[in-house]
Design a protein around this nucleic acid. Sequence first.
DNA 1: ATTATTTTCTCGACAGTCGAGAAATTTGAT
DNA 2: ATCAAATTTCTCGACTGTCGAGAAAATAAT
Lengths: 407, 407
Amino acid sequence: MLTKSSTELVRQRNSVLVLSVLRRHGALAHTEISDFTGLSSATISAITADLERAHIIEKSEQQAASGRGRPRVLLRQRRDCGYLIVVIISSDAVQYSLVDYAGKLIDRFSEERSHDPAGAARFVEGVRAGLSRILERSRISQEKVLLISISSKGLVNSTEPVLVWSPIFGSDQIDFESALRPDWQAKVILDNETLLVAAALGAREEIVKGADFRSLAALSLGHSIGLGIVRRGGQTGQEISAPNFGHMLHMAGGGLCRCGTRGCIEAYAGFYAILRSAFEVPLDTIPAKFVPVTELDKIAAKARQGHRTSTIAFRQAGLALGNGLSRMLSLTESMPIAITGPGTRYYDLLRQGIEEGLGQSHIVRMEGMPEIRVVADEPILVFEGHLNRALSVIDQDIVVSGVQGAE
Amino acid sequence: MLTKSSTELVRQRNSVLVLSVLRRHGALAHTEISDFTGLSSATISAITADLERAHIIEKSEQQAASGRGRPRVLLRQRRDCGYLIVVIISSDAVQYSLVDYAGKLIDRFSEERSHDPAGAARFVEGVRAGLSRILERSRISQEKVLLISISSKGLVNSTEPVLVWSPIFGSDQIDFESALRPDWQAKVILDNETLLVAAALGAREEIVKGADFRSLAALSLGHSIGLGIVRRGGQTGQEISAPNFGHMLHMAGGGLCRCGTRGCIEAYAGFYAILRSAFEVPLDTIPAKFVPVTELDKIAAKARQGHRTSTIAFRQAGLALGNGLSRMLSLTESMPIAITGPGTRYYDLLRQGIEEGLGQSHIVRMEGMPEIRVVADEPILVFEGHLNRALSVIDQDIVVSGVQGAE
DNA sequence: ATTATTTTCTCGACAGTCGAGAAATTTGAT
DNA sequence: ATCAAATTTCTCGACTGTCGAGAAAATAAT
């Protein structure tokens, strides 16, 4: 359904646009903002005056004279305009980061996760404690925290911050919104981890390719398997989604997965699955809760020396991934695939299987093999994705909730 | 990337909005338009005055007095504002329909398709001839044809009207844009047939459910298998896509498909595949080009009487569909599934397999079985989808290309 | 000092939406 | 017949927004 448009909306959109170019390019002068946005100089004056009055941006005090002419006045976000807390949940720890409105990291610490199956309720308590701890350490007032951006592996509700299924808690749902509402009035968003990787890669790609960028998928290999897809959308920039790829059906009645279903992709390509397959343990064995990477390194070493069952284990994993990717491509347009995560160190062993698995589908035979690239530094990408997403959400909210107020 | 906004754009969007409620609800009075759009009465006056000046809408001359007070003046599209040609390509015929700007069918005929494999070039000639024929019969001047909307089974390029792969011509691509450009200056759009079914069902659903409508998939069963997905998007109404579902990989190294690949869903669930499987012909046999429905009816009759291999054939087909749908759901959100096409007459035989195939995946075990409904009258839905899409494209174009001109 | 150059700011014109109320037009009561 | 009530459409002034042009500001070079 279409909705009505109004002049006030125009100002809102253009204000957000100004903030977004400021994010992308750092502190900018009046003229540069005008160039980047396409808005006239007069409009920039009006918008920046509003934003300055609302204490959202500020004039940079001084900068090197850059030639003759009236010197430029750089505009930048006010760091103290608001703050963001990033919570990255991984299998062995929870990392808390406090970031200011300009995207600068202020404080960070990790808390080990107890491996006891204390369950979701207990875990949520830990998160609440972690959040109050990072707030206290910084002496920032709670109202200044505008957004809490959480990420985890697993399946996430697309509209609300609810973790629907996760490798750790299974179907024990966690609703972060209602869990944090008593303590916090900040907005809470939750994203799948690999989705953030895809978002970060997509943003990088868009800077390089500009309008040529169309779409991209990120595949994260590890104990579990994640996939994020980013597509450039119509007006609102990028559109991203994080399918339940690791638990997409690979083969009906196949190996038993951690999720309890048989034949998931993860039950062939997750670390525990490779281990299981390499040791020729029956495929209906209940999967190991945790596999040290050193175990897998050993198998990889054997495979690289030509050991048969180890080689086959990685090959099976590759096939599952390749088939799954081909199915994904059948349902979307063709797009490049970026592989990240700890599993990339075995890419040499997985590659053949992946390519063969891809090649078994009509779409790949027709359109050719998609571009596959290996990308390291997954944790950095996750954090970058958090910032990209969270800060633009803040920009949006801050503008919508009233710039007019001179305060 | 965000783009700048302006007051002129506001008017454009609101004009399109006015035209769209006029489409949805038929001829409306000033006040009603105001109610439906949320725009003020004054704005409606301004916009409708513009549209009337540009000969896009007109005042309905007279209507029954509806109570006391100043009588309403109904506004409606001018039929002669422009015309649309709908071309529906099916396996045995091509249907041409001429429609006026108000959505009224003016003329229609079908041309049999020769089953000779004369190839794409020859076929395009036929389409060009068909188009000129329908134009001549109507005595409408060619410039008045604003849009040619084509549909076919198969895989379609998402940005240009290029048929990338089709059951009939295989990988012999057809670029309708360049094929028709010499004769026509009308815009040309091409959509997958099942996508249009999904669009039509989505539009109906949105009228019923309003904002509650989220998404929907249409599955078309026949000689080939089609899937269309419609999701409600942010601003721009609905977002639709037509994946290459029929040729998504069902089982690696499986039955030979018409497309030349092994293991496609279609190679298990297409009519020819059911036939092949029922007669226990080896799965690598080259599939029949064409299967009369009566053949399949016979197998269905046998299956309903308990004949074993016939029953298994339908069950296999259902499993392939169910597994495929489960994979689709793993990659999207959960959504209801509407089944259409000639294959619905065998739904009683397919159902168990579909449900079992769906149940083998994590997502369905977790979120439960999606709602499945059988919808008849596929051809009507296809045409309805054409009109929905094409006329709103025309509305958009007509407004963008300048309403201001009084002409 | 003066001039050239560059950036920022300001002003008036123009486009769009909105609310309020005037104008138009019919029904129903007196 | 006439007038009041009801209802719809139209119009006007206020407000918000963008834009182009040019004034004002501030520095470097001459």
